[in-house]
Amino acid sequence: MKRIILSTIGLMAAVLFIPVVASPYVIYLSTEVLIMAIFAMSLGLIMGFGGMPSLGHSALFGLGAYTVVALSQYVSNVYVLLGAALILTLIFSLITGFIAMRNTGIFFLMVTLAFTQVLYLISSGMNLWGGADGMSTMVRANFGFGNIASSTGLFYMIGVFFVLSYFLLKVYTSSPMGKILKGVMENESRMTALGFNPKIFKTAAYTLAGGMAGIAGALYIYKNQFVSPELFSVHTAAEAMIMVFIGGYGTIFGPALGAGAFVFIENYVSSFTDRWSLILGLIFIAIVMLKRGGIIHLLSLAWNSIVRMRKKMFSERKRNVVEVKEEEEMVNERITKSQ
């Protein structure tokens, strides 16, 4: 628990620090990173800890976003809007999770993919919320201490949700629920024999991740003020999946790093070519073919080798000291002998 709290504080400090040094444009991008990080971390939970590769995760992101846009026509209270997005996505993911959990592996993937596509087609076919063109809205968050209008304010607001999500996921994965989830991923039938009903633990994680993706989608509206069926597309789901992999599969913070790398690379590449989708596809293929871990694995590898190097240097220095001492003694001996 101590380590979890310490890492959360570290993360908080980093989030606090960014607007101090970054340019407005970087702050703008980083806000997007934080939203996608919440989304990717939630997917990372069910993929990397639950072994459930869902292509339906964008359904929840989109649902959260649509909820805020639809309700913002009538209410503006941020608690109501976020709360509604959370509750709706929790219910939706509980129900769809319950259905999808009847199947494993490839069936699971297909069923979740089908959920996403259904929402995509419904949202683009309905005239209600702009249909295929999407719809814009005007929402400002007011948590009781004034409207959050500046981009720095927005960054901090979303930063709070990001740090909270990180903390929650860290605690969850270290709790009995989380440990059991991992066990189910490793060996489901053995878990049944040990006294667990695997479906409960998988559905619980799926629902939690769904609610978190819903919140990410809702926050996305506060930043972009626009919603379109694109959010439901397989593309969005696939992007989240690639963030998980770029960042580091099987860790909590990895997907957040992946989101950061993804958003910045996308931005950079899109500035000089329209072929981002092509490049993204090639990145997918490269990641699979090269079979390397994510950024977080590379970082920990680098960290370990630094630690090892320092240890080595330290022991060398110690040896030097010993050698010098020995030399001194020899000299002293010689001196005493000559006397």
Partner: peptide, 19 residues
């Protein structure tokens, strides 16, 4: 740990670290 948890009622606790 997993084997011990199998027969514990707090296996459903999502908020307290196992250790």
């Amino acid at each position: 740990h997993l084997a011990i948890l199998g027969n514990k009622d707090y296996k459903f606790n999502p908020l307290k670290p196992l250790l």
